[in-house]
Design a binder for these strands. Sequence first.
DNA 1: TAAAAACCGTACTCTATAGTACGAAGATAT
DNA 2: ATATCTTCGTACTATAGAGTACGGTTTTTA
Lengths: 215, 215
Amino acid sequence: MKTPATPAPSRREANRQSRREAILDVAAESFLEHGYAGTTMSAIAATLGGSKGTLWSYFESKDVLFGAVIERVTEAFRAQLSLILNPADGIEAALRRFCAEFLRKVTSAEAIALHRLVVGEANRFPEVGEIFYARAPQRTQRLLADFLETAMERGELRRDDALVAARQLTALVMYGGHQQMLMGLIDTLTPEAIQAEVDRAMATFLRAYAAEASS
Amino acid sequence: MKTPATPAPSRREANRQSRREAILDVAAESFLEHGYAGTTMSAIAATLGGSKGTLWSYFESKDVLFGAVIERVTEAFRAQLSLILNPADGIEAALRRFCAEFLRKVTSAEAIALHRLVVGEANRFPEVGEIFYARAPQRTQRLLADFLETAMERGELRRDDALVAARQLTALVMYGGHQQMLMGLIDTLTPEAIQAEVDRAMATFLRAYAAEASS
DNA sequence: TAAAAACCGTACTCTATAGTACGAAGATAT
DNA sequence: ATATCTTCGTACTATAGAGTACGGTTTTTA
């Protein structure tokens, strides 16, 4: 059997690919930790062990590398956010689990660093905000909205705009500890704090979106 | 009569003071527009018309100048946020006005620029986040919480933790357009959009915190 | 009006960093 | 085995920007 026609993974291509990944790994770490200005191409090359010429043969400039890193990290973040929303649990339990998991991920050191980077560089790199928004907040909201939509149709929640409801629930969950982490007031959320935040958010949300009592 | 003992506003002092203000004005504009890394001391000196030596005689380093700018701009922001919460209007109207005004201010170009700066530099300048948080979100929350507290005591809202309620209301108001502005997806909120955001937030909030129906 | 302080302009030092050049060494394909 | 592509190391260019030095000029004080 010969090699399959479509992907011709010659040795060179493969090497090139994994090399590229390695560069992105190192670059991502540096950008996330030190920001755009605080990251130097020389340092990246040094950490890689390779030479600068090689680095430039993969990415023609720091800007381009930065863009690639953001795209990749955001993608990784999205992938990691495959949150559970199991209707079989019952609506309240499902939402509660979802919120806790969501808050945990969104307040991880990596996620906070990414968020800071996106917001901080939104001026210089407008596309960065768009990429991030489309992949993170927007997807989460849509996922959640679909779930809420179903619940509304079943009469388990009051009928209303599901997307708005989804946004509001994420807002309620994020606006406490997440906000403070973003600004550097605290640098971790204990599991208890997460629980507490979720409880508060859920209480308010459920009260506002409880199914109408009368028929 | 000699010069008064306590304030000796000699000509020199006065000049020095106003000069300092002028520097901070120029520096603030630059930091807000171009960020920390994007701002150069030379450019500030050039815009001022003065010489670099003079600039350094007022602020011993770029870091120090940045700190002073943040302190000042945050203070200005806080002062501008003397929001109206007039209980005589009735609770719903009062809150509605408050939220609209709040959202308008928080989505102004200046406020967004400041917010980005604070979040983006929270790593390098930890004190910046603290200053900002204490003066902006925290104060607003406390102001609002006091109002809600009173309303709760009067039985106009369901009895609950007023500070949490305040945080939740601001969260509901801010998480839509403000979020998108921060990330550069849009760069203004029309008055209509503000109205719509406030309406949605208020509807949810009032449902969740309506006074208990039964006695 | 004379001494003191602040300011100006300009030129300078020093360091950091993006990006380039290039020849030698290594890996890959045919 | 040999031509080709890739990488390595290292040295280099070019630029930018923080901070300093200093002599001459203006402003303030007394």
